[in-house]
Amino acid sequence: MKKKRLIPVLLLRNGWLVQSKGFSEYQNLGNPITAVKRLSQWASDELIYLDISTDENYDMRREDLHNPNRHTIFEILDDVSKRTFMPITIGGKIRTLKDIEDRLSRGADKISINTKPLEDKKFITQAAKQFGSQCVVVSIDVKKIDDSYIVMKNSGSEITKYGAKEWAKIAEECGAGEILLNSVDRDGKKNGYEIPLLQEVSQAVKIPVIACGGAGEWFDFAEAFDESAVDAVAAANVFHHIDQSVYLAKKYLYDNNYKVRPPNLLGIDETL
């Protein structure tokens, strides 16, 4: 039987692992590569890296390329693919097919796109045709405005004309393999997933939906699986702040008969 997945999200800003709140406040959590080692040992099912650097910061980083403490997404990918052997999704700053190819050739299994398809939905089809649907994840940031779920672009800062359900269906028709569904309102709040949003979108499409935004305790994962048809639960902060987080979350779900992989803790010297 195919398993439900638990996916830690690593937010990268100027090469650092950060914590985000409401898509606007950021706190530095340290080195993204050290974090991968932990997440591997706790037997995460997949990893999602989202590069949320702003363009301005991106330029700043270029001047600082010699600083070994800062990592480009490619250096991170190189390192990560040597240390961990699970599926890896990379998102952020993807505007062209070449951007996708660059990431896949450095060890990413899937890419996540957000703003570009909102400007040109054919980009989803082009990406799916060239690299296969299975590696195209369309990430959708959603805000609740006057009781409707509205899709946002540019890191949750700009309103679009699309409703969440409508855009998810378009993404599926265009060839997306998965939907990463983020609630901007719940980001960093630790008060649980936006369940009605998860229900609305996971019922509307056949492709897997990954829930994101709001997880604060293990029960929140169970609730997402109970109340909606999502295929995976993703979270950032809760997985980075608690020791053995992924293991403990999985144990909670496994012990309560959710269809997840058995919890596992790998030894310190095992980097798998």
Partner: peptide, 12 residues
Amino acid sequence: DSLPLPHVGWNN
């Protein structure tokens, strides 16, 4: 049948 393809994910 009605399951999505490709079959992507962890399975035993």
